[in-house]
Simulated scan of single mutants.
Amino acid sequence: MDQHIAESIGRPDLIRLDDRLVCLRFETMKAVSALAAVRHLLETGAVRRGDTLLDSSSGIYAYALALACHRYGMRCHIVGSTTVDHTLRTQLAVLGATLEQMEPCSDLKLDQKRRVERIHEILAEHPEYHWMRQYHDDIHYLGYAAVADLIRETLGTDGLTVVGGVGSGASTGALARYLRAAPEGRGPAGRAADVELVGVQPYGSITFGAGHVADPEIIIAGIGSSIPFGNVSHELYDALHWIAFDAALAGSVDLLRRHAVFAGLSSGAAYLAARHERDRSPERTVLFVAADTGHRYADTVHARHRQAARICDLTPQEVTDQSRLALPWSRMQWNRARATAP
């Protein structure tokens, strides 16, 4: 039996959509990393119950950290993006978290920059606060070990492709690291687990070199960044998909219409990329990450279902380097290369 709702919210479901396409569906994915990170900090003495934990968030991590703080008796202070909606603001307030939300801004790069600057101002005023550094600290990888165990026990690691948003690197990167490293993933001849990792990025994200291509709609919050992230392990990724808002919207709508999975915008992008990977590699099973439910996207994404393109009409442009990236969808082999210079 769970001891707190955060444990239940963080536990994913594995849903088979067809013979070779599987959805790893979370209610709130980052509850996994936030709970494990806070527990580790307490166990190691880095923080004590009653301390204040501080971080920046575009939405989903704010809720996750507030839940983890509620679970372990901590205080929570969030510097929130302009994208934090009324429902989340209300939840954070009732949970006792402090939210400082940035003023409306159409430039996400400026929004992220202002949030980081505000974090440093708060730390100068309150050096006793602990900055969680979700974008920079590998501590956020820890919670995905149990998720990797679930995947291994259910699907195995022979011919498995994992697809999902890159974000801070702490979800898809962690899953690949644990699935590849686990002894259970090795066969009798010592062959390493056959796990490929495919990352999904929005245009405008500098993480894999797409900062020069703008999406006329929005940069999809949470799966990319216009500022450097310190805990993305580029060498874990085999391929990358860059997907624009309109294509991700089509994926989200089709995921609900075809499979009744109500999920967010990044999930729609991952679903679109996963279908493509399934079709290009008929011998592999493809698992994609649906990071959260679709509730906060109901008005901006799902309500536009009549405008959504048919996903059968969408296909990625294969590129060999980032200078050739083009909307609405591009794909590139990354081949586990290290980060390139910005």
Rank of each mutant, 00 (worst) to 15 (best):
V38H: 11
Q317R: 15
R152C: 14
G230R: 03
R278H: 10
G10Q: 00
E318Q: 14
P188Y: 06
E235G: 12
P202H: 09
G209C: 12
I9W: 00
A34D: 07
T98Q: 03
L67E: 12
L142S: 03
E117K: 05
Q101V: 10
A181G: 10
E128D: 15
H234F: 12
H77S: 02
G294C: 09
I151L: 15
G204E: 13
Y135N: 09
D299Q: 14
I151A: 09
L197P: 04
R338P: 10
E125W: 06
I227C: 06
L99V: 07
P282S: 05
L35I: 11
L255M: 13
I227A: 06
G167P: 07
R310M: 09
R75W: 01
D111I: 00
E7A: 04
L287I: 02
R39N: 10
A339D: 08
L272N: 07
D138P: 03
L287R: 05
L108H: 10
L256G: 04
N231Y: 01
A182S: 11
A64D: 11
A263K: 13
A181S: 10
A291Y: 02
V200E: 09
H86L: 12
Y271N: 03
N335S: 14
R177V: 01
I219R: 08
I227L: 15
R177K: 14
A269G: 06
V32Y: 03
D292E: 03
I60G: 06
Q91I: 01
D111A: 02
S8Y: 13
I220H: 07
A269C: 04
R180D: 02
H241Q: 11
A6I: 01
L179M: 08
H259Q: 09
S171K: 05
R25L: 12
L287A: 12
E196S: 15
R280L: 13
L92V: 04
D137N: 05
Y63F: 14
F245I: 03
L65A: 01
G251S: 10
C69Q: 03
K109Q: 14
G10D: 04
H126T: 11
V163R: 11
